[in-house]
């Protein structure tokens, strides 16, 4: 980084649960070196002392669900040298993107006593649908090792090492036994982006795809296997409609199941 001062870091929240930002604070052992190498200029979860922009690094959590945020993300982009999206909401629209498959007007009427007080968009969209993004960290929540790798890469001016291959390869490196093959447990690992370290299969659970699609996912090849394991069409559809429901490959998979089984 040029100049005598430390790079200035900002953390921003859009429609999200704060879990990804908290991963920053979860970097307990590394927190002091981080604070030493960057100036944490704007991070409401950490400090009420907020410094004005511009910022060298902006970490953006959450998706765009209201008109104000569609404008706010443009201002943040304009003030940021590197803009990095963190987590499933910011990278694919998050669990709240389930609205993209439904009628938001109906939700408003059913849920709120005075729906006219509520101004919302019909869809939940990732940050990259609104502004150019320099890098993205996947996951619900993100993995702290990937956050540190990303910050280190920006600080040293190199490309971050964020493999986009499948959870399977992390699972095998860890020595896990495949839950699909040895237990018949439905698992999205073969189509899901690596980065979590294969946590769920290590505890005999199937991957539920919280890192979203891998670099070259083939959900169509996985569907027959999941059906053979006894998943009903509505379960299959839901399997692909969680934290990354609107990620194109997962969306295509759930829609192909829905189209095959017809309207509910």
């Amino acid at each position: 980084m040029p100049g005598p001062s430390r790079p200035r870091l900002a953390v921003w929240k859009f429609a999200s649960c704060d879990g990804c930002q908290l991963t920053m604070l979860d970097c307990e052992d590394e927190l002091l070196p981080i604070a030493d190498r960057v100036e944490i200029a704007n991070f409401h979860e950490a400090s009420s002392a907020v410094g004005d922009g511009p910022y060298d690094i902006s970490l953006v959590e959450g998706s765009i669900t209201v008109p104000e945020d569609a404008a706010r993300i443009r201002e943040i982009r304009a003030q940021s040298r590197f803009l990095v999206t963190i987590g499933a909401c910011a990278t694919s629209g998050g669990i709240q993107a389930l609205r993209n498959f439904a009628d938001v007007e109906e939700f408003r009427r059913v849920v709120y006593a005075r729906p006219e007080y509520l101004r919302t968009l019909a869809t939940s969209t990732p940050i990259a649908a609104h502004v150019p993004v320099d890098a993205e960290l996947r996951g619900c929540p993100i993995h702290k090792a990937q956050l540190l790798e990303l910050l280190g890469a920006i600080l040293s001016g190199r490309r971050p090492n964020l493999p986009a291959d499948s959870v399977c390869i992390e699972c095998k490196r860890r020595g896990n036994v495949c839950v699909l093959v040895a237990r018949g447990t439905p698992c999205l690992g073969p189509v899901t982006h690596a980065g979590c370290g294969a946590i769920c299969p290590a505890f005999h659970r199937g991957c539920y795809g919280c890192f979203g699609p891998s670099e070259a996912p083939v959900p169509d090849a996985l569907l027959p296997k999941l059906e053979a394991l006894g998943m009903r069409p509505e379960e299959l559809e839901r399997f692909f409609q969680t934290f990354n429901a609107a990620a194109p490959a997962f969306r295509a998979a759930s829609e192909s199941v829905r189209n095959r089984r017809g309207p509910p």
Partner: peptide, 10 residues
Amino acid sequence: RCLGCTNCTM
């Protein structure tokens, strides 16, 4: 049919 998941190679 191939998932490209890397399991065979692992």
